[in-house]
Design a protein around this nucleic acid. Structure first.
Lengths: 146, 146
DNA sequence: GGTTGTTGTTTCAGATTTGAAAGAGATAGA
DNA sequence: TCTATCTCTTTCAAATCTGAAACAACAACC
């Protein structure tokens, strides 16, 4: 049987869980209010903008976003409707589809990024000193390996 | 215009966001596999079990879980179907409904808690030393105030 | 070439979530 | 009281998400 959490552990855990959830919600709300984009939209735009020729296979995109196949299909088709992305068959593989960033999509990202940056700074980064930043990096690197 | 994130800031941010998301998913998956409960279910059970007489008004519950009104209605009605909770009109206020923990709900929580604890320890708490734990508590206390 | 199995993506039905509107009760002021 | 306004919760329609098929195209092997 595992030891119950002691007071320090319980406090750390509850503070982290509640606060990181609130942060997540806050980022989503701010981005939506500022730009009309969801965090999913935004993340797709970022990943595509960093991809060679601004294009990626569906499966590749799903992998980067940790989305199920059906979810990436739904997400991209929603973005296609809004003109942020277009879809085209993959030249090398008849089964494949590529999602390609449109000019509108790139413009939406470039408009959104500075506003999102402000939110990230205000709600997280600028609240931490360099030592704390380093601890966060170290701690969550360890956690990621789970 | 806000400064772009420097390397240390960007690394901290990306590490935190990706890792905390993965952690969230991991907790959900483990709990579901071990117990059949979702994290939402579990959280409702915890909050009710800590409430006086194991009962809370819908609105109160929604506040604790940061759920919209319609979401708490849906969540509780789903738990009622599974026998974890029952619902009854509020004596003091004819508009209100109370969610009450059932014996089955309490039993489900008591069975789930130790397994969930193991997951929390393995994937987070036991990976940190006391100093790191203290920094986490301090940092996320600051962040919560956003 | 013709299986056979694998992979990439979509489709489908069902579960969850959201926001807006509705309904039923409280509360306060005329 | 009466009425206007709030508050608590549910309902509804639409959006999103999930897992299990279904489908089409690839690849390996006979």
């Amino acid at each position: 049987m595992a030891e119950p959490l002691n007071d320090a552990e319980a406090l750390a855990w509850r503070t982290f869980i509640e606060s990181s959830w609130a942060l997540h919600t806050h980022l989503e709300d701010e981005l939506r209010a500022d730009t009309g984009l969801s965090m999913n939209d935004y993340h797709v735009l970022v990943v595509l903008s960093e991809a060679p020729e601004h294009r990626l296979r569906m499966g590749e995109l799903a992998g980067r976003l940790v989305f199920s196949p059906s979810r990436i299909t739904y997400q991209i088709s929603s973005m296609v409707k809004r003109g942020l992305v277009r879809k085209q068959p993959c030249p090398e593989d008849g089964r494949g589809q590529e999602a390609v960033l449109t000019a509108d999509g790139l413009a939406a990202l470039e408009a959104a990024a500075p506003m999102h940056l402000v939110t990230v700074r205000d709600s997280f980064i600028d609240r931490l000193d360099p030592d704390e930043l380093a601890v966060i990096t170290r701690v969550f690197s360890k956690v990621r390996k789970a």
